[in-house]
Design a protein around this nucleic acid. Structure first.
Lengths: 341, 341
DNA sequence: TTGTAAGCGTTATCAT
DNA sequence: ATGATAACGCTTACAA
């Protein structure tokens, strides 16, 4: 016995292939394939022989070879712009609940800017590895991405692709923003600021539009100084962007943030300069992320049916893969009134 | 299962194959392969012909076939127990930063309980699809998982596998807990409660051990009533578990929570019954998640080098794939003092 | 330098 | 019911 007592590699032969199983069971590889897939009738005793050979060898079919033959991988590619965002995480869970039930696996890939820029990367990594794509990627990244994986069924979730036949699942971001601002108007606010995010996200632009529409509908002029665009969607970006808001000559009495993280950042910034929320400034968020209800003041916000969004996107894609025509869907949002506004 | 109505297995030249390129360029497929991979010298003009044929046809090599031949996929499987947890998300980012630089792609899979239970699922979905595995899965799920993908190099991150040669990357959870509790002791606290999580997570157990050790070392007896185990790691679970803590006859003056989410939940629960943090009860968390510094009071907590954890795990695995011996690593943690304790 | 051909591990189409 | 055998799209000796 060598002293290197470690190396517990019980698998001496690398991997058993189908031919090894066939040999051991004394049948042809075709028969093995049949019992594995239950594709055709096989005698009870031969089936048993094959099955025990499989067990003894610890055989597992090579997914690569199988997919190559079948022309399908039963894998779906999910493009996520930011793992750290719980919003996307929830959507993925929704996606997974339906794909798993249908025997599909998920390949989740980071569709961050770096990847989107270097178009070849995505292709060389995942080309032909998935049967379809569900994308949560930024609007701005979507088109280049789409070119990279052209001949695959796509479904966009939360975002959408203009001038294309890519179906999408989303809430009506514009209408949701209108509802949010209208709520603030109803509470008597006249000077309402917008804390927006990069409009590389289509939803940011749409919420922005809703904000302006609601204001104009109420006969209130949109003041450019009241619109701040955060450099990202983290708490810190909300703090930054909201920082100077209250230093204005005529500060806003309410703020509509296009994301809860930005809203919380803003609240934090306001507190630092001694303002209270909602007494001095009302703050309304978007997304209803988990902290929203635990933060103090608890966030008044727009909730998206995140899980359902993901599930619907998956259903759409599966339907499309099955040859059916998939139509875009719009799901309902809801205004959740808590304490911050 | 599909309702066998229609089997549209039409592959009407959906994608150009290597032979199409060869034909168009007037060369053999071998030559095409060579210019694609730069594996051997090719005449300048033939190379050009091939390249333009590739461009015209929009040809992209089929990753499946290529991997089947090469015996490697250049894909790494990352097992994540919970997408919604930003802690794991950050680790994945760390992993990605190094894998991307080395030309490896990531297949991120949900290693939730459901998947771990049904062992066949993991195998049938991802078998042979990855060259190696980085697992963030729960300790309790790890072993069954490991059996499913036996002949693949594994690296555990944050968790580890006892009695195996699976290398791991982690901080010293036990020592971190000792540091945390010692800090509270130094501040004069004698009655310190533990808010723990399911010990399906090995780190939960280790932090628990550290808690007990630090107390005993200080000559303080461990009181079972002061130890509460939350049913999960969400905010709500922290609220639940901490709820009755202050209703005790001799309530604790400080709480050490094994996760920031639990800590925040606890603070929320304490506030509900009119207690102030840190004046009435000090609360110390773990992980330093993004909200920790924005929440009020800002969380005193133990920070893990999350990004580095992921990067180190990836480096370990890559090294192992390259044939080298990979050794487990322990990274440093840090106590971050803010306001809650 | 280039082409021929033998696999890689499956599934699918024939016969038998 | 079972067995040859031809794909699937690629890489890589081995020839030419």
């Amino acid at each position: 016995m060598p002293s290197s007592a470690i190396k517990i590699r019980n698998k001496p032969a690398a991997t058993a292939s189908i031919s090894a199983v066939a040999e051991r069971a004394g049948v042809s590889i075709a028969t093995v394939s049949r019992v594995l897939n239950g594709t055709k009738a096989v005698n009870a005793d031969t089936r048993e022989r094959v099955e025990s050979a499989v067990a003894e060898l610890g055989y597992r079919a090579n997914a690569l070879a199988r997919s190559l033959m079948r022309g399908e991988t039963r894998l779906l590619l999910v493009l996520v712009p930011d793992f750290a965002n719980p919003y996307f995480a929830e959507i993925v869970k929704g996606v997974e609940s339906v794909t798993r039930a249908n025997g599909y696996g998920l390949v989740i890939a980071d569709a961050s800017q770096t990847l989107s820029r270097d178009s070849a990367a995505l292709d060389s990594l995942y080309n032909r590895l998935a049967d379809g794509v569900i994308s949560l990627a930024r609007f701005a990244d979507l088109k280049p991405l789409l070119q990279e994986i052209p001949d695959l069924p796509w479904v966009a979730c939360s975002e959408f692709v203009e001038d294309s036949d890519v179906p999408s699942v989303s809430i009506d971001h514009r209408q949701a923003a209108i509802d949010a601002v209208q709520y603030l108007l109803n509470r008597g606010h006249k000077r309402i600021a917008l804390l927006s995010a990069s409009e590389d996200y289509r939803w940011a632009r749409q919420r922005h539009e809703g904000y302006e529409y609601a204001l104009q509908r109420a006969g209130i002029a949109v003041e450019p100084q009241l619109v701040r665009v955060a450099r990202g969607t983290d708490y810190i970006h909300g703090m930054e962007a909201a920082g100077t808001l209250l230093a204005m000559e005529h500060p806003p009495t309410a703020v509509f943030a296009v994301a809860d993280t930005l809203a919380i950042g803003a609240i934090k910034a306001f507190r630092r300069v001694g303002r209270r929320v909602p007494e001095d400034v009302a703050v309304l968020g978007f997304d209803d992320i988990p902290v929203a209800q635990v933060f103090e003041p608890a966030l008044t916000t727009i909730a998206q049916p995140v899980r359902e969004l993901g599930a619907a996107a998956a259903e759409l894609l599966l339907k499309r893969l099955a040859g059916g025509a998939a139509e875009s869907r719009t799901l309902d949002h809801a205004l959740i009134v808590r304490q911050s506004a």
